[in-house]
């Protein structure tokens, strides 16, 4: 939902970042307002996953230039946990398995950290149990997964559902979903996409990082951005994704080559 007067949640300006001294982002510009759903598409290596990690504050990525403002303040100076508590959520492409740590306990500690920031009462084990069971329905998740270790032995689809369950519990302002569709069959994709749709409100925004257009059949974006060589090459509406589906990424490569913008 595009409303020009809606709050500017995320304002990315000429963002440069590198990992192990290798530049990956080469001047990303992007503005996200409340109520919007953005899709960022691009080939592997175009920098789209790096963008999501930089926004979440992964310590392995170094910002070398530019700025990111989140609701008016500098996002980049915050620790990853502070970003989460303030409402920035990253749905992982590969959710991490943590043996020995119960999923339920993890969800509770994490959700209380956010609640505390929001000035809400922290939930004890019993209240949280009720709360989480109610939220399970967002992704039609089997309660048995609460009793297991975080993501341990979960299938690809179960891990992604667990990510969206966390999103449902954390009630984020900006959600960045990194390849949430990868490794999902069509049924699981619909469930996960259904969860994302249920959680979208006029007050929050979603950034979908994806390789394929099929996710966009389930979640309708307001904007589609095509990334290449660490920059956003073109921005359009839904039709841009359909065009990519038809023509592939070859034209993107040509454009990058013709402007000599490999790694700038």
């Amino acid at each position: 939902m595009i409303r020009p007067d809606a709050e500017l949640l995320l304002d990315i300006n000429d963002l440069h970042a590198s990992v192990e001294a290798q530049p990956i982002l080469n001047g990303v510009n992007l503005q996200v307002r409340a109520g919007e759903i953005h899709a960022v598409m691009g080939r592997n290596g175009s920098g789209k996953s790096t963008l999501s990690k930089v926004l979440a504050g992964h310590p392995a990525y170094r910002v070398t230039g530019g700025s990111v403002r989140y609701r008016g303040s500098d996002l980049l100076e915050l620790e990853p946990e502070e970003r989460s508590r303030l409402g920035v959520f990253l749905g992982f492409q590969y959710p991490v398995e943590i043996p020995g740590v119960s999923n339920l306990e993890f969800l509770r500690v994490s959700s209380n950290a956010r609640r505390q920031q929001q000035g809400l009462e922290e939930l004890d084990t019993f209240d949280f149990d009720d709360h989480v069971r109610e939220r399970l329905s967002v992704v039609q998740m089997d309660p048995a997964f609460l009793e297991r270790s975080v993501n341990e032995g979960f299938s690809g689809g179960e891990k992604k559902r667990n990510e969206i369950l966390q999103m449902a519990l954390l009630n984020p302002v900006v959600s960045i979903l990194d390849e949430t569709d990868s490794g999902l069959d069509i049924d699981a994709l619909r469930i996960v996409a259904g969860g994302v749709n249920q959680l979208a409100t006029p007050e929050n925004a979603t950034l979908l990082i994806t390789h394929y257009q099929r996710l966009l059949d389930e979640i309708t974006p307001d904007y589609v951005h095509v990334m290449a060589a660490g920059r956003i090459l073109r921005t359009g509406g839904r039709e841009l994704a359909l065009e990519l589906e038809k023509t592939g990424y070859d034209w993107v490569d040509e454009e990058v080559a013709s402007t000599g913008q490999g790694v700038a």
Binding site: E81, I98, G100
Partner: peptide
């Protein structure tokens, strides 16, 4: 990083991982 990206402080995250 996974735990910290969920609002859990690094000290608490380290403790959870150690306990696990």
């Amino acid at each position: 990083f996974y735990l910290r990206s969920r609002g859990i402080s690094s000290a608490r995250a380290a403790a959870l991982l150690l306990r696990g």
